[in-house]
Design a binder for these strands. Structure first.
Lengths: 215, 215
DNA sequence: GTCTATATGCAGATAGAC
DNA sequence: GTCTATCTGCATATAGAC
């Protein structure tokens, strides 16, 4: 809303972002935020009245930076394959750079879902519209009336899991080797596209007005 | 390890379980745990020396109650379809009854992954063995050497997502209607089995020594 | 074992100098 | 705007009576 933020304000937001995202709202310490920002605790309260308000500011700025990409992705989509492909890339770029972010979101999802819903709907994202589009482009897969929701949940789950479970998953199945795991993540888009290609072609082969069948 | 726990101890563990799982380690309050257990705060410290030790006790008892089911599931498995099917049912029963549990685990995954790894490996779960089995039963799907890992990550992600994202997902795509969402969850095993059936048959059709191809 | 009362410590917030 | 010093409150932990 407001225009240019001061330099200090930016440093605070940045530091707070790091700490909140790693430690969560409850686990974060104002002292640590101040330290990372290279300023004093008191300044935090000068700029943001309280810890809670600081958290809200951080959260909203984080969401605000992501949602637009997400929205434009959803809105420009025509075929299910495009949706999937965009999802994969989206998640892989966002979360590889910000490994703690999913946890951050999930915390809010459970503690203040209504707030998140508000933020999302205030952007130009329309869930009903998305469902409608998907229903049209793959209507014959089976008789479930929740087919689009199943698809969305599946794609998101497949994309998210390697990121949100990474510390344990990498330990158990990759000898805790970072290099190997990154290779795995790089492969993953291809792998998922093959899966979804299969599912989508089953669902669209009755209509087949999609030129990009061979995804 | 130790034998029968006292009644009070049980009540504490139960109450602590609830609170920790809803609020997390940092967000939980000893007072609230005491209240729910119907006892005094001081007693918590009498039975468990500190909040941290109480948390550890709760966490290990939770894991201990789940891992055995998980382990026997993995070990009795012969075909990939069986693995998937077991996963679906496992997650759906566990997490529908304990909606906060995934968050609880993910918190530990990020804060103390080595602890979790230790607990898991101390049970009779062997990740390498699982990977080996899966490689044998579906070797030809593609050239990726991480194919089993992709499958595991995919299945877990598809199972978990509707549970861990429920508060938001239900709001966005189900008008926040519990009944509808539960229907969706009930449908989900079928849906996922169809998907995996497709993938698995693609991967096994070159060998086809599996009698349960028609899953 | 269970309680009440109290101590301790620390994190968030404020006051006020510069 | 930024700092040092201080206050306040709360959560964990302990002491000690019963």
């Amino acid at each position: 809303m407001n225009a240019i933020k001061t330099d200090t304000e930016q440093k605070i937001i940045q530091a707070a972002h790091e700490v909140f995202i790693e430690k969560g709202m409850e686990g974060a310490r104002m002292q640590e935020i101040a330290d990372r920002a290279g300023i004093n605790k008191a300044l935090l309260n000068y700029y943001f009245r309280s810890k809670e308000k600081l958290f809200d500011a951080v959260f909203e700025s984080t969401v605000a930076s992501i949602i637009p990409q997400f929205a434009s992705m959803l809105n420009m989509v025509e075929s299910p394959q495009e949706i999937m492909f965009s999802f994969f890339n989206f998640y892989n770029t966002i979360f590889r750079e910000n490994p703690y972010m999913p946890q951050f979101f999930f915390h809010e999802i459970w503690q203040h879902p209504e707030k998140l819903e508000g933020i999302i709907k205030s952007q130009n994202i329309n869930p009903e519209e998305l469902i409608r589009k998907m229903s049209e482009s793959m209507p014959k897969f089976d008789e479930s009336k929740f087919f689009p929701q199943h698809m969305i949940a599946s794609v998101m789950g497949m994309c998210l899991f390697p990121h949100i479970a990474r510390p344990l998953f990498q330990r158990l199945f990759f000898d805790n080797n970072d290099t190997q795991y990154n290779k795995f993540l790089e492969e993953r888009t291809d792998f998922l596209m093959k899966i979804v290609g299969g599912i989508a072609s089953e669902s669209t082969n009755s209509i087949s007005d999609n030129p990009d069948e061979d995804f």
